[in-house]
């Protein structure tokens, strides 16, 4: 099982082999909803990552104390606490991002990745391994959301936003100011389309790699 992996393997698996978005297909709701810009994707990924790191660590350290019958309520309390903390921190320090993500920050509570990792991994593994797992999953999730957001933003608006806070923003106008934009890419169907292409590409690459190794 998973515990046979090396410590680096524990991190790396989240990038590709067990990527939460591209392989496990978890957390589809925030994936599709907030990725209308690259910055939103990064922000959502990191906010989820903070919650995941906190909940994985805490749940792994509590696993011997919590009776099996109340484990799910305990997980939910732990996760909800971290989500509320993230929500307050974003509102206080990163207002633009908090407005961009809107309702989807409180909704991290019900993101399957977090409860999934708590139940499937952190409750059975050491604290250290759970931290590594959370880090890998965070990178994988953030990367997938970033790529999805970047493709949609470039095609839909011709820009690529990497950071935004008050007057400071890192934004590239890649396709010039006359670019009208493919509207559908910013709308929900664009998210489904782009994700479908990403999944297909991921599967194609994986198959090719497997053929080579055989």
């Amino acid at each position: 099982m998973a515990s046979k992996l090396t410590l680096t393997g524990e991190v790396i698996k989240g990038f590709w082999k067990e990527n939460p978005v591209l392989t496990l297909l978890l957390g589809m709701c925030p994936t599709l909803a907030v990725t209308s810009s690259a910055y939103n994707g990064i922000g959502m990924g990191l906010a989820t990552g903070f919650v995941l790191l906190g909940s994985n660590t805490l749940i792994a350290s509590l696993k011997s104390v919590v009776p099996r019958s109340v484990r799910i309520p305990v997980y939910v309390v732990v996760i909800a606490t971290f989500v509320t903390i993230v929500d307050m921190l974003l509102k206080a320090y990163l207002l633009e991002l908090s407005q961009g993500l809107g309702l989807f920050v409180p909704l991290i509570v019900v993101n399957c990745i977090i409860l999934g990792r708590a139940e499937a991994f952190a409750s059975k593994n050491t604290i250290f391994r759970s931290v590594l797992d959370a880090l890998g999953m965070t990178v994988g999730f953030t990367l997938a959301l970033f790529v999805l957001g970047a493709i949609r933003e470039v095609a839909g608006a011709g820009t690529l936003t990497l950071f935004q806070m008050g007057e400071t923003e890192i934004k590239f106008n890649l396709l010039g100011s006359n670019y009208i934009g493919i509207l559908v890419m910013i709308l929900p169907p664009g998210a489904f389309l782009t994700l479908a292409f990403m999944l297909a590409a991921k599967n194609a690459i994986t198959q090719r790699l497997e053929k080579k190794s055989n």
């Binding site: 919590v66 009776p67 732990v78 509320t84 903390i85 509102k91 206080a92």
Partner: peptide, 24 residues
């Protein structure tokens, strides 16, 4: 276990709220 976990969660949230409410 439930009482202790929820109690600690409440304390943690109160502490963060204390730091951020003015800024918000």
């Amino acid at each position: 276990v439930m009482v202790v976990v929820t109690g600690l969660a409440g304390l943690g949230l109160a502490a963060v709220n204390d730091r951020t409410s003015d800024l918000i």
